[in-house]
Amino acid sequence: MDIAELKKGGFLKQLQKDYFAVRLRVAGGNLTLEQLETVHQVAKKYGKGYIHLTTRQGIEIPFIHFDHIDAVRGELFAGGIGLGVCGGTVRGVMACQGSYLCPHGHLDAKELSRQIDEQFFAAQVPGKFKISVAGCNRSCAKPQENDLGFGGVIKPVFRENDCIGCGLCADICPAAAILLQDGYPLLDREKCINCGECVTACPTAAWRQGEAGVRVWAGGRIGRDPKLGEVAVAFLPLAKIPAAIEASLGFFREHGRSKERFGKVIERIGWRKYREVMERAVRQDA
């Protein structure tokens, strides 16, 4: 077992001779108590009495000796936990709590992160590739700091019969897209940013959620040259998410240099070209 192979499998070499920090596979920051129990047991048996919470909602178990690597891997697998990844791969997918429990959420971010993890985790690409999913435009899961980020957006629909004319939607719309006309709201769909604040705030559910989708940001990263991602697709239907990821990974593989970040690749090749690739991939009839 060589070091490169170890690294691919989520074993990070420590300063201390023959010791590794073991990165675990976590999607959306959720672990069941059974999985947590497994982490506890493995860390207690082979580690040094603590675990490390990573910046990407993951877990690393430090101070695993080289001699115990196979045992650790086997016991984690038996307890329903896979190993994380390093290097040029699709990393663990982050997510906020999303619409499953957050009053602001317009997207089940945990579920989407689970699906993305299932389909794309550890996929090989030239450099590290980080994905995050946020339930709404409050961006708690920081999608703009990721190579590819998704944020829940919706198209609001209005039912006049339920409206009490309070005007709250017009007051709070961050895009000033709602004006009151004869006491009732009128939405300018050109101005609407699909954030869903009107749907969330409406006290009588006169504003309701219509079509749901995601906003897609690309090219974000922190690292040595931090930059927020740019909007690649303003409103992407949920069913097109896998195609958008596939197209982005394909673009990265075709144009990326070893260890280059996705955003740098887009900047070098051109946003226009990347957006063309995305548009082709997510067309409704595709």
Partner: peptide
């Protein structure tokens, strides 16, 4: 005002 009326309805 964004949260209270909505949550009362909920």
């Amino acid at each position: 005002v964004k949260n209270v009326p909505r949550s009362l309805r909920a």
